[in-house]
Deep mutational scan, measured.
Amino acid sequence: NDEAKKEAEKLWKNNKSEDEIKERLERAGISPDEAEQWLQELR
């Protein structure tokens, strides 16, 4: 999970869309709710 979150953070810094980041997190096995929460922390 931490690995996926690091990846999400990297994508965020590269200005990827939130949808793309969420999709990537969900593919890594993170629930949509958790993915949404993680994005809010990044904002």
Results as ranks from 00 to 15, higher is better:
Asn1Val: 14
Asn1Glu: 09
Asn1Met: 14
Asn1Ile: 14
Asp2Ile: 13
Asp2Ser: 11
Asp2Gln: 11
Asp2Gly: 09
Asp2Phe: 12
Asp2Asn: 08
Asp2Lys: 11
Asp2Thr: 11
Asp2Met: 13
Glu3Tyr: 10
Glu3Met: 11
Glu3Pro: 05
Glu3Arg: 10
Glu3Thr: 10
Ala4Ile: 12
Ala4Leu: 15
Ala4Glu: 03
Ala4Thr: 06
Ala4Gln: 06
Ala4Arg: 07
Ala4Cys: 15
Lys5Asn: 01
Lys5Val: 01
Lys5Asp: 02
Lys5Met: 06
Lys5Ser: 04
Lys5Pro: 01
Lys5Phe: 14
Lys5Arg: 11
Lys6Cys: 15
Lys6Thr: 07
Lys6Pro: 01
Lys6Ala: 11
Glu7Arg: 02
Glu7Pro: 01
Glu7Lys: 03
Glu7Val: 09
Ala8Lys: 00
Ala8Ser: 01
Ala8Pro: 01
Glu9Val: 04
Glu9Trp: 08
Glu9Thr: 05
Glu9Gly: 01
Glu9Arg: 09
Lys10His: 11
Lys10Ala: 09
Lys10Leu: 14
Leu11Asn: 08
Leu11Met: 15
Leu11Ala: 05
Leu11Gln: 07
Leu11Glu: 09
Leu11His: 08
Leu11Val: 01
Trp12Gln: 14
Trp12Pro: 14
Trp12Gly: 14
Lys13Thr: 09
Lys13Trp: 13
Lys13Glu: 15
Lys13Ala: 13
Lys13Ile: 11
Lys13Met: 11
Asn14Cys: 15
Asn14Met: 11
Asn14Asp: 15
Asn14Ala: 13
Asn14Glu: 15
Asn15Gly: 15
Asn15Arg: 05
Asn15Ser: 07
Asn15Met: 07
Asn15Val: 01
Asn15Tyr: 03
Lys16Cys: 15
Lys16Pro: 04
Lys16Arg: 07
Lys16His: 14
Lys16Ile: 15
Lys16Gly: 13
Ser17Trp: 04
Ser17Asp: 06
Ser17Asn: 09
Ser17Ile: 03
Glu18Pro: 08
Glu18His: 09
Glu18Asp: 09
Glu18Leu: 11
Glu18Thr: 07
Asp19Met: 11
Asp19Pro: 07
Asp19Tyr: 08
Asp19Lys: 13
Asp19Cys: 15
Asp19Thr: 11
Glu20Met: 05
Glu20Gly: 00
Glu20Leu: 05
Glu20Val: 05
Ile21Gln: 03
Ile21Thr: 02
Ile21Met: 02
Ile21Val: 07
Ile21Trp: 07
Lys22Leu: 12
Lys22Ser: 00
Lys22Asn: 01
Lys22Ala: 01
Glu23Pro: 00
Glu23Asp: 09
Glu23His: 06
Arg24Asp: 06
Arg24Leu: 15
Arg24Val: 15
Arg24Tyr: 15
Arg24Gly: 09
Leu25Trp: 02
Leu25Ile: 02
Leu25Glu: 00
Glu26Met: 14
Glu26Leu: 14
Glu26Phe: 13
Glu26Asn: 08
Glu26Lys: 11
Arg27Met: 11
Arg27Pro: 03
Arg27His: 07
Ala28Tyr: 14
Ala28Asp: 06
Ala28Ile: 13
Ala28Val: 08
Ala28Arg: 11
Gly29Lys: 02
Gly29Ser: 02
Ile30Gln: 01
Ile30Ala: 04
Ile30Arg: 01
Ile30Leu: 09
Ile30Gly: 02
Ser31Ile: 02
Ser31Ala: 09
Ser31Gln: 07
Ser31Asp: 08
Ser31Val: 03
Ser31Leu: 07
Ser31Thr: 08
Ser31Lys: 10
Pro32Phe: 09
Pro32His: 08
Pro32Trp: 10
Pro32Lys: 12
Asp33Trp: 11
Asp33Phe: 09
Asp33Ser: 10
Asp33Cys: 14
Glu34Gln: 13
Glu34Asn: 03
Glu34Trp: 05
Glu34Lys: 09
Glu34Phe: 05
Ala35Ser: 06
Ala35Pro: 00
Ala35His: 03
Ala35Asn: 02
Ala35Gln: 07
Ala35Trp: 06
Glu36Val: 02
Glu36Cys: 05
Glu36His: 03
Gln37Phe: 05
Gln37Lys: 13
Gln37Ser: 10
Gln37Asp: 08
Gln37Glu: 12
Trp38Met: 09
Trp38Leu: 09
Trp38Thr: 04
Trp38Arg: 00
Leu39Asp: 02
Leu39Arg: 00
Leu39Tyr: 03
Leu39Gln: 00
Gln40Pro: 01
Gln40Glu: 13
Gln40Tyr: 01
Gln40Val: 08
Gln40Ser: 10
Glu41Phe: 06
Glu41Cys: 14
Leu42Thr: 04
Leu42Arg: 04
Arg43Trp: 05
Arg43Phe: 09
Arg43Val: 09
Arg43Asp: 04
Arg43Thr: 05
Arg43Asn: 04
